[in-house]
Design a protein around this nucleic acid. Structure first.
Lengths: 131, 131
DNA sequence: CTGTATCCTGTAAGATACTG
DNA sequence: CAGTATCTTACAGGATACAG
């Protein structure tokens, strides 16, 4: 399942500007945006990435408790998606019963800058909108 | 409607880590992420912002044609959301019939850096995942 | 402990028709 | 032209039960 990648043609389900589009100069940019959003979008993905950035390794059960409100199904699904996108690795430890550690990859860390921007903008935005 | 702002308490509907959360150091960061995502998330919002950044003023009908696949309802809704978040302005021109121009605000342009990061990361990500 | 399978629901988004 | 109203659909996400 990891190796199939969920990556059909575009990396995302979101609307992609068509090639026949008037200004195809921006098409590529919008496509790139869609590709990033595919990794970041949704209710849990980016929060998950944030946690992997801020903390280190985490086990499934820890994540389940750590992430307020997520269920096993969603967590599992999102972890697979992140793994498919090479953002995290999944390591099975031969304990009994087995345990699994997830941790961010070096590549995953390349999201750090973007996420940091997102954090900064959000912090400022809240201040601005609240008053 | 613009002035009600859709901003209840958190700026987003997404899950927010609770105050009682184990590591409340990161709570603020995760909240900030959620706030940004509220502006960026969804099928159309960020694409819309991108267009306003790359192009200049646009009218409703132009946007409708420009954005592959969007319908009037969604466009209207997203524009209101962006206006409520002070990302764009809406100007009614006294033509007959009336026309309306939307354009990004100076504040909206503060998203430029973040979006630029998102574009860059997405561009690279596609290359990486594709091979 | 780490998941998957199944079923169920709520919300995002689309289609269509209509108005100032 | 620039939307809104209404109805419908699709899918993300949740609850529960169960398996290796």
């Amino acid at each position: 399942m990891p190796d199939e990648l969920l990556l059909d043609k575009p990396l995302t389900n979101n609307a992609i500007p068509s090639k026949e589009h008037p200004c195809s100069d921006h098409r590529e940019k919008l496509l790139a945006i869609a590709d990033t959003m595919d990794v970041i979008n949704g209710k849990w993905k980016i929060q998950l990435i944030g946690i992997f950035l801020f903390q280190g390794k985490m086990r499934f059960g820890e994540l389940l408790k750590h992430i307020q409100g997520i269920g096993a199904k969603m967590l599992s699904k999102e972890l697979q998606h992140l793994e498919a996108n090479q953002i995290i690795t999944r390591t099975v430890l031969q304990t009994k019963p087995i345990t699994v550690e997830y941790q961010i990859t070096a590549y995953g860390r390349t999201l750090e800058r973007t996420i940091s921007d997102i954090v900064d903008w959000g912090t400022n935005h809240r201040r601005r909108i609240m008053r």
